[in-house]
Design a protein around this nucleic acid. Structure first.
Lengths: 245, 245
DNA sequence: CCAAAAGTGTTGTGCTTACACCCATGG
DNA sequence: CCATGGGTGTAAGCACAACACTTTTGG
C-alpha cells in the first residue's frame, strides 16, 4: 500500500440517509428507485437517498439537504451513525453502472457517512425528482438494495433503538402533536418489534413528567373514547438534566 | 455550491484515533508531538495519531494499523465513533503549515473518521517514529491540540462511557488479567470521574457471573491481602445472550 | 498495638413483570 | 345488548443508594 500523487484515486465522500417514517401503522424507510437503460437492457433497483458531498460542504449539512429534498423537512431528528468505507462496497457491476450513469466522473471508490432520520409520514406527498422516484417501504419488506444499503439499513434500525432508550423524546417525532396512549404503545411495539403489556405501559409512561394529559378525548369512536396526550419539550429538558447525571 | 470536474478539491479522508490508556492510576491519551521549522520559526504542537487513508484502504483497517504502529497492539477494542467533516476543520494557519509539511500534497480539506481504542499501559515503550514523538498524557491535562482534536477527544470520552455501560467487558481491557476489586473500582472511578461506594460496588460486581474470584491473594502488602479476580469472556458472552434481548 | 485497606448487611425506594376485570361508547 | 377498546391495582423480585463496623496483615 502506498500513497500516490494521483488524487483521482483517493476516495470520494458521500452521505446516505436512512429516513425512517411512521404512518400510524408500520415503520417505513424511504427508498429511491433508479431506472436507466444501458446497452438496451433496463436496470432497476432501489437505494437509500444519498449523494456525493460538494467541495466545501459539511457532511452534516449534506444530510440535512437530503432530508429537505426528499421529505421537505428541515427540523427532523437526524443523526450520523456510522461510516461505511470498505473499498469494495461500490464495486458490484450493477452498482458501477449506476454510478457512471448518475455521476459523470470516474469514481474509484466511495466512503459514505450514514445518517438516520425519523419523520412522521403525513398525507403530504414525497417529492419525486429528476430520474428517480421515491417511495416508502415497510422496513420488513425491503428488497435487495444497491451497494451495501441493506447493511446500512439494518445497522440504522439497531442504532435507532439504542438512541430511543437513551433519549425517549425522539420517538414523539413520529407521532402527531396529540396522540392516545394506544398510538404511543403501537409505535413502541412497531419499533421494538414486540408486544407490551397495557397496564405496565401506562404506568411507565405516566411516570414521565413530560407526557401531558389533555382534557380532550377522541370523538366518534365506537368504544370508550381515549384521552389525548402531548409531549412537552420543556418538561422533558428539565427532566433530562436530573436523570443524565 | 457545485460539483466541479476537478477531483483535487474533493475531500481527502483520514482516520484519527483517540487511544486511551490506563496505567493503574489515571486515564491517559496518546498524543504525538509535531515539531518542524518553517521560516526560521519553530512550530510545536500535539495531535492525535492519524493519517490519510490509502487508495484502497478500508478506514477500519487504517485505524487498526495506527493502533499497531503506535501501541504495538493488534487486538484492542477499537471503535469508529464519529465523522468530523466541517470544511474549516483543517484551516487554521498552523495546521495548514503542518499539513503541507507532512503530506506533499495540496490538501483542500479533510474529512476524518474518528476511532477510539482502549489499551492497558504496560512498561513496554511506545514506539517513537520518524519525525514524531509519542507520549501519554492524562486526559485532564491535555494541551490545545491541532485541528479539532480537542473536540474529538472530548466526544470520545463521552462515547466511551456510553459504550462501557452497554458492554462492560471492554473496561477489563484496561486491567491486567488478575486484579483486585480495588483496582476495578479505581478504574471505574477514573473513567466516570466520580467516587463509588465500596459496599454497593462489591455487591454490584459480584452479581456479574463473568467476574471470577480466584484463590490467589495479594502478597507482601502492609494490610489485609485482597483477593484477585479475573474476567471470564466465555461466561460474559453467555450472559450477554440472555440480557440483550 | 497501630496503620491501612479488605470485606461485609440492612433498609428504603423505585422499576419491572405478571396477571384480570369493569367502564364507556356507538351501532 | 354487544363489540370494541379504555382504563385501572396488586404483589414479587430486583437494582440502587445510603450508611459503619470488624477483620487481616505488616511493621
Amino acid at each position: 500500500m502506498n500513497k500516490t500523487g494521483n488524487n483521482s484515486f483517493y476516495p470520494h465522500v458521500s452521505v446516505d440517509c436512512v429516513l425512517l417514517g411512521y404512518n400510524g401503522d408500520s415503520l417505513q424507510v424511504l427508498l429511491l428507485e433508479k431506472n436507466f437503460v444501458e446497452n438496451h437492457a433496463q436496470f432497476n433497483g432501489m437505494k437509500l437517498p444519498g449523494r456525493l458531498i460538494y467541495n466545501n460542504e459539511d457532511p452534516d449539512k449534506a444530510a440535512q439537504s437530503l432530508l429537505k429534498e426528499w421529505a421537505g423537512i428541515h427540523n427532523a431528528y437526524l443523526k450520523q451513525f456510522k461510516v461505511f468505507g470498505d473499498p469494495e462496497r461500490t464495486s458490484r457491476p450493477e452498482d458501477v453502472n449506476w454510478l457512471q450513469e448518475a455521476v459523470d466522473l470516474k469514481i474509484g471508490r466511495i466512503v459514505t457517512v450514514a445518517y438516520m432520520a425519523l419523520i412522521r409520514i403525513t398525507s403530504r406527498k414525497i417529492q419525486p425528482a429528476a430520474n428517480l422516484s421515491a417511495r416508502w417501504c415497510p422496513v420488513n419488506e425491503v428488497p435487495p438494495l444497491a451497494f451495501d444499503h441493506n447493511v446500512i439499513l439494518k445497522e440504522a434500525l439497531v442504532e435507532i433503538r439504542k438512541n430511543i432508550r437513551l433519549d425517549p423524546s425522539i420517538i414523539y417525532r413520529l407521532l402527531p402533536p396529540k396522540f392516545t396512549l394506544l398510538e404511543l404503545r403501537r409505535l413502541y411495539e412497531v419499533v421494538y418489534d414486540q408486544t407490551m403489556d397495557v397496564r405496565n405501559f401506562h404506568k411507565k409512561v405516566k411516570r414521565s413528567p413530560y407526557l401531558i394529559a389533555l382534557d380532550e378525548k377522541e370523538e366518534n369512536v365506537a368504544h370508550r373514547a381515549a384521552r389525548y396526550y402531548r409531549f412537552d419539550k420543556v418538561s422533558y429538558n428539565r427532566h433530562l438534566g436530573l436523570t443524565t447525571m
